[in-house]
Nucleic acid binder design. Sequence first.
DNA 1: TCAATTAAGGATATACAATATCCTTAATTG
DNA 2: CAATTAAGGATATTGTATATCCTTAATTGA
Lengths: 161, 161
Amino acid sequence: MQLRNHVEWAIHCCAILAGVPEEHYLATRDLAEFHGVPKEYLSKALQALSTAGLIESTLGPGGGYRLSKPAKEITFLDIVEAVEGKASTFVCTEIRRNNPCRPKGARESKACAVARVMWEADDAWRAKLRSVRLSDLIKTLQQDVPADLLEKTGKWVTLRT
Amino acid sequence: MQLRNHVEWAIHCCAILAGVPEEHYLATRDLAEFHGVPKEYLSKALQALSTAGLIESTLGPGGGYRLSKPAKEITFLDIVEAVEGKASTFVCTEIRRNNPCRPKGARESKACAVARVMWEADDAWRAKLRSVRLSDLIKTLQQDVPADLLEKTGKWVTLRT
DNA sequence: TCAATTAAGGATATACAATATCCTTAATTG
DNA sequence: CAATTAAGGATATTGTATATCCTTAATTGA
Ligand code: SF4
Ligand code: SF4
């Protein structure tokens, strides 16, 4: 079980978009070039973020994307669920219903014990993702990434907005 | 992103095997019939559990599988990792290396901030799975499942060991 | 010893999802 | 009006999950 690489792309794109000046936009072309990924395919991930209301777009020259709310109000979970969906990683196919000893047509009183545990684990994963905000990532990057690279990157982005 | 159904099958099979009398075995055929899943395919999941050392097998008539240690010493994580592998759900493809502002060939001092967050979430998921033992599941089932069905099922299993 | 049984595991087929590209449409800009 | 851009439909390609089949070797009981 592996997350799609859209997740990595989407998080990076949000991090870059967080550095776009107010009232400006950054185009898919530039995000794709920056990350070295295919523009048309990255576009699908950006559309998902847009549909989820995390980023917003405008058309025409100078158009592109920007965050639609402050980085503090966007969590990792928002981004992950935008591109991976909200469905649980564990899907119960109710194989317990096949138990040959069970009277046919019997209703289950509640979700199976197995599924409950798996769903709790899924919740723990989401809770962790929900606890980290895009603004936290930006802070970490400002500590981790060398100052000169950070500055150059900022300029690269500004040049294209 | 979805877990394979081998996970559900494997957990159920372990739960059934926990009810197999000492020194007895239950064959793949019976486990497949009980759960209503294809025998040959279920066999792959059981082989994974066997390779992981959670269950053990013997050949010949009366052969099959049994737990290779007490249910108290088997966690959900053991089972999930046996069939899904231990690799993280998030794979970092290091797209940060493509940053056009970055000097080529530069070494990264540490794992990217994005990957660290995603890995922590993955760890939270695994920690939850590690905290639940097969013996806990058995206890829950004994409360959830009606007594008569539990008894019938126990007999069904015993008959075939 | 022999025939039946069983797990292990290789080979292969099928179905579906992830990845990737292409193209059309409509909105926006200058 | 011409250029630019996101949205999104259509489709191709690749890879993984699902599923089946078959061979081998170990074990059992007759
Ligand atoms: S145990 Fe839970 S998950 Fe597995 S089949 Fe029964 S109900 Fe579905
Ligand atoms: S952010 Fe982390 S995960 Fe994403 S590319 Fe950079 S290193 Fe890889």
